[in-house]
Amino acid sequence: MKYVKIILQISVLFLFYYMGEAIQSAFSLFIPGSIIGMLLFFALLTFKLIRVEWVADGIDLLIKDMPIFFVPVTVGVVQYLDFFYGKGSLMIPLVMLSTFLIIGISGWVTSLLLKKEVDAHD
């Protein structure tokens, strides 16, 4: 019975995903269908049309082991390993640098805003 419940809860995610995909292609939107499905699901949770306890167990189970779902697509890079031997290796410091900039700038902007808020309260 427990397994049936979990399978049904995970099916809800598939349902919203396919709805999102359908909306995306119907209106030729540039946002991925999965994100549309997620926003739809979020809206229904927020408006309490779907209760957390109806879906939580299955979803939490899936999220807990989420990384396993990224394995096949990541392994796909095995088809392009030559890329990283040549010029492609430049992409590695590039991604790292861009990542550090995000941390620095996001963090810095946020702390400025937080300080302002504190000053405003004083």
Partner: peptide
């Protein structure tokens, strides 16, 4: 396994 990639995006609504 790949079939789950899209639905997992939907799942992120719950922690949010």
């Amino acid at each position: 396994i790949d079939l789950f990639l899209g639905p997992i995006v939907v799942a992120l609504a719950l922690p949010l």
